[in-house]
Design a protein around this nucleic acid. Structure first.
Length: 949
RNA sequence: GCAGGGAUGGCGGAGCUUGGUCAAACGUGCAAGGCUUAGGACCUUGUGCCUUAGGGCUGCGGGAGUUCAAAUCUCCCUCCCUGCACCA
């Protein structure tokens, strides 16, 4: 049995001692392969192997194809997650400690993890060990991390340049906010890890008829302004008169306090909702004077506590008014005006007759409800109605009459904002309130003077779009995806108050946001080790240095003078980046597509010269475990280091990378591993057995194996060039094992042939199972390293379709005979009898010719009249051809085997066939056969006669 | 809500871009036999239904259509997954 850990460590030591993965510029074409650098807040598990293994495979493949390949690695320490770990350790979070122990982190190390930097270093070390254990061909001399002062200099340069190019902007920005901790609140800061969802709402100003104070009505549906009949307030709630940015408003006291995080608000006086009921308010669009009424559903915590009532379109509003009518509340006659019409044929799915004049009532009827229905039923009706109207609603009022509802909503809102009839606020749109981990309710705050990277810049988008057009993507459909993302991406906040990372140059209290700082770090690999080797200090990496690297200046003397770095070192850095960065390949999992990878493209087009722009992106799917997602909540996580010891790095890499197509999730399962173990065992034993075998003259089956091999190399190389890894390895691995087994079963025993075959297979296997392949390579008597070998070449002369086809004919014939024997043994007449012999009758040669003519011309008459068929009996020819008539269009040419060759093939394999069939075999030619079934012989499909005793 | 992707044999998953050679690659599971007595085994055969000779029928989420021909093209429906910004 193969001991993977032992074997793998043995070859890792050899590779390391010989520095086989250290790459420096030479005269070969260059390729820089990078995979998204890992974030160091937890060690990797076996699922993380996929991206790095895919990159490693491509690196090895391209190296074998003659490229000088560099595959470096670094560690991502920027951001808040590491701080979060430290915080949770400080508070002795049991779940976290349990998780860490699962990764074999000892108590002493855990106790030190109150220090974020310790955490970062610890996990970076563990991760490096994991990647070394996996056997990746990484040049570790170039390792760095993203909070290293040296690296920060590159990030700073990036931001100086972005500002220079006016791609940074400042503005306000809404965030979830905890008023207790005075902090922005993201998903991981909330109870239950709820993502705060922020919606923009419109506050429409309804002027009090008798004063200059406005009722501030918050709404998501400003387009219904044409159907407003009244204002609702909660008579028992506390309201205020407040000055919001220069104008006075009625709104709930609660709302005033919440909105003070978004607007400048000063409260002038307080009142009870009841006092508002006597007032009347002016609709800013229609000018109607509207009554203010008590609404049972109005909550002073929601929105502004003041609601505009649209009874035709809002079930709550409708219900509230109907209830007031029942109570005989004193109010004027109200006109329930419909302002949106839904295209017919959609709403009442049950076919019931519902009220279409008052949609709010209609939707209540749909739910068999009335105005006294409980709130949740009204809520359901509201949602259904809102959905229907957004989908199929057409405006029938106002200047946007005829427009689709969502469009009208947008335009009416913009109009009112522009005319000062409304303003916007932000609110959380989550179903239920969100709470910070500290217990405080989360609200929305707008941050002033927030810095953004302006990915919305049209000229920038255009450049990036062009880049996407020029790049290669695997899988190919990514090109379209990125095209769309380039259009979609807009302002992106780029600084934050907390976290590890590089200080934001234009606001040193803040840190550069952690996705923004890792958009061009791949350039750093090309020259960092030169800086390390020359003891360059971070403060020497002034902008001039990077200006020189990235072609903004070519005055090396001045750069050297400015920075104090020797001209020689600078020149070396420049040569290195010029060599490596002109041909790059980037790998990641799909989660980085809409963020990191998109930003990566943008920053490159903004700052780097044409020849340094990205060339290729490869994205691979995730890894499941036994069919379900790997996650700590499922308890199915296997840490990488444990996994490599238990399963072997090679088999793990193999099933993760080749087990599924690139863009789909792959599955980790013990069954799949077992399949690899047994096949590897077979290959291993087969190589072992070669020593005891002879090499004689080549037989039919030897030519067959050579043909299969060379065709395989050709096909598989094409598949790899397309990153079709699953299909490629079905050919290289699974099929090769079956072919070897077939070869042996057919009596193949030529050591030389098998050696040739295995040697090529091992070469092709070495890019995914390098350790195992290295082992086999040496067992095959090689003294070189397989990981430094070239990709096998195709010997076209050895590809012999006829040889392969004839093998297929033999295989199919055996199958047909067996099936025929089984079926005919059920005939009463054959009960209890044995098969005496099986006649195999090979078709006359003209049949293949006729068949191929038919396949080409698709016309029986044309074959009949073809001069090549001149000597054939017309009746036999027409009988033969007519059997293909019904599928004539589906016929395609076959590799005709001469009847001589076929007869020889059958003669060669007579013994084998007799063994497989379990009875004697007699070969006949159609023309010479006396069998009644002889005429049934088809090209490449002999007729069979089973002769019973 | 917006955007994107998906629905195929017991299971995972090909094939659908370029309709036919597809009862459906490859893997895995299951069953019988061999081997052998136990090693994650290995080998053979079978694994939609029917079938007295290599054949037929039904089938690729549901429904309709285009076509000589559809898992593959068009339309509608149902269900599922992923992302949506300060979060790496």
């Amino acid at each position: 049995m193969i001991n993977y850990p032992e074997m793998e460590k043995k070859w890792q030591k050899v590779w390391e001692d010989l520095k086989v993965y250290e790459a420096d510029p030479d005269n070969r074409p260059a390729l820089l392969v990078t995979a998204a650098l890992p974030y160091v807040n937890m060690p990797q598990h076996i699922g993380h192997l996929r991206t790095y293994s895919t990159a490693d495979l491509l690196a090895r493949y391209m190296r074998a194809k003659g490229f000088n390949v560099l595959y470096p690695m670094a560690f991502h320490k920027t951001g808040t997650p590491i701080l979060a770990i430290a915080k949770r350790i400080t508070s002795r979070d049991e779940d976290l400690i349990k998780e860490l122990k699962m990764y074999d982190v000892d108590d002493e190390s855990i106790s030190k993890m109150v220090d974020p930097l310790y955490i970062a270093d610890y996990f970076a070390t563990v991760m490096e060990r994991g990647m070394r254990r996996a056997g990746y061909g990484i040049d570790w001399r170039r390792k760095f991390d993203t909070i290293q002062p040296m690296f920060s200099k590159l990030v700073e340069w990036q931001f100086f340049k972005l500002k220079e190019k006016r791609l940074l902007s400042q503005g306000t920005h809404p965030v979830g906010w905890c008023t207790n901790e005075n902090n922005a609140v993201g998903q991981h800061d909330t109870k239950g890890d709820v993502q705060p969802e922020i919606d923009e709402e419109t506050v429409i100003k309804f002027k009090d008829v008798d004063s200059d104070i406005y009722f501030a009505c918050a709404t998501l549906r400003p387009e219904t302004i044409y159907g407003v009949t009244n204002i609702f307030v909660d008579p028992k709630a506390r309201y205020v008169i407040a000055n919001i940015e220069g104008e006075r408003y009625y709104l709930s006291k609660n709302a005033a306090s919440t909105l003070s995080y978004q607007k400048k608000i000063s409260v002038e006086s307080e009142l009870i909702g009841d006092e508002l009921l006597k007032k009347r308010a002016l609709n800013p669009i229609t000018g109607d004077a509207l009554p203010v009424l008590p609404g049972f559903f109005v909550k002073d915590e929601t929105g502004t506590g003041v609601v505009m009532s649209v009874p035709a379109h809002a079930p709550f509003d409708y219900a509230a008014l109907e209830r007031l009518k029942v109570e005989r509340y004193s109010m004027p006659e109200l006109n329930y005006k419909k302002v949106i019409e839904v295209k017919p044929g959609s709403e009442a799915k049950s076919g019931e007759e519902i009220n279409r004049e008052i949609p709010a009532l209609g939707y209540l009827e749909l739910l068999n409800a009335d105005p006294n229905a409980p709130d949740d039923v009204l809520e359901r009706a509201t949602k259904a109605l809102y959905k229907e109207e957004s989908h199929r609603g057409i405006m029938i009022e106002g200047p946007y009459k005829g427009a689709r509802e969502p469009e009208a909503r947008k335009k009416i809102k913009l109009d009112m904002l522009r005319e000062g009839k409304a303003f916007s606020i932000y609110a959380l749109s989550n179903e239920s309130p969100i709470y910070c981990r500290c217990g405080q309710k989360v609200i929305v705050k707008t941050i002033e003077n927030q810095w953004f990277i302006n990915y919305g810049d049209e000229a920038w988008k255009e450049k990036t779009r062009k880049l996407v057009g020029n790049m290669k993507f695997y899988p190919g459909k990514l090109k379209e995806d990125f095209g769309m993302l380039v259009d979609w991406i807009d302002l992106r906040a780029t600084e934050r108050a907390q976290g590890l990372g590089t200080r934001f140059p234009f606001n040193p209290d803040h840190i550069i946001e952690s996705l923004s700082d890792s958009t061009m770090y791949m350039t750093f690999y090309t020259f960092d080790y030169i800086l390390f080797a020359n003891s360059v200090k971070p403060e020497q990496l002034k902008p001039a240095f990077f200006d020189y690297l990235f072609d903004y200046t070519n005055d090396i003397g001045k750069v050297s003078g400015d920075t104090g770095i020797s001209e020689e070192a600078i020149k070396k850095c420049k040569e290195s980046i010029d060599y490596w960065y002109t041909n790059t390949d980037r790998h990641s999992a799909p989660d980085l597509i809409p963020n990191h990878l998109t930003m990566y493209l943008f920053i490159h087009t903004a700052l780097l010269p044409e020849r340094f722009l990205p060339k290729q992106i490869v994205v691979n799917g995730f890894v499941n475990s036994e069919g379900v997602k790997m996650s700590k909540s499922f308890g199915n996580i296997v840490p990488l280091l444990q996994g490599a010891e238990r399963y072997g790095a090679d088999p793990l890499r193999f099933i993760e990378v080749t087990g599924a197509d690139l863009d789909t999730d792959t599955n980790f399962s013990v069954e799949a591993l077992n399949g690899v173990y047994s096949r590897n065992e077979f290959l291993y034993n087969t190589v072992m057995s070669l020593g005891g075998m002879q090499s004689g003259e080549l037989k039919h089956i030897d030519y067959w194996l050579y043909s299969v091999l060379n065709r395989k190399i050709r096909e598989v190389t094409a598949l790899l060039d397309e990153m079709s890894l699953r299909n490629a390895y079905t050919g290289i691995y699974y099929n090769s094992v079956s072919e070897l087994q077939w070869y042996l079963e057919r009596g193949g025993n030529n050591a030389l042939v098998m050696h040739d075959f295995l040697e090529r297979i091992v070469l092709m296997l070495s890019i995914i199972m390098p350790h195992f392949s290295e082992e086999l390579w040496h067992m095959l008597g090689k003294s070189t390293l397989v990981v430094k070998e070239q990709w096998p070449k195709v010997d076209d002369d050895m590809i012999n379709p006829v040889e392969e086809e004839s093998e297929n004919v033999i295989r199919n014939t055996i199958y047909d005979v067996r099936q025929g024997m089984e079926l005919s043994s059920k005939i009463d007449a054959n009960r209890g009898r044995k098969v005496k012999e099986v006649k195999i009758i090979v078709a006359e040669p003209w049949k293949a010719e006729a068949y191929n003519i038919l396949a080409e011309k698709k016309d029986i008459g044309a074959v009949m009249g073809d001069p090549a068929m001149g000597k054939i009996d017309k009746e036999r020819l027409s009988k033969f051809l007519s059997q293909f008539a019904k599928r004539i269009n589906a016929l395609s040419r076959l590799n005709a085997i001469s009847d001589e060759a076929l007869m020889n093939g059958f003669a060669d394999s007579k013994e084998f066939m007799e063994k497989k069939i379990g009875s004697g075999v007699k070969l006949e030619k159609e023309a010479e056969s006396k069998s009644a079934r002889a005429a049934r012989a088809l090209p490449n499909k002999p007729s069979i006669e089973i002769v019973w005793e």
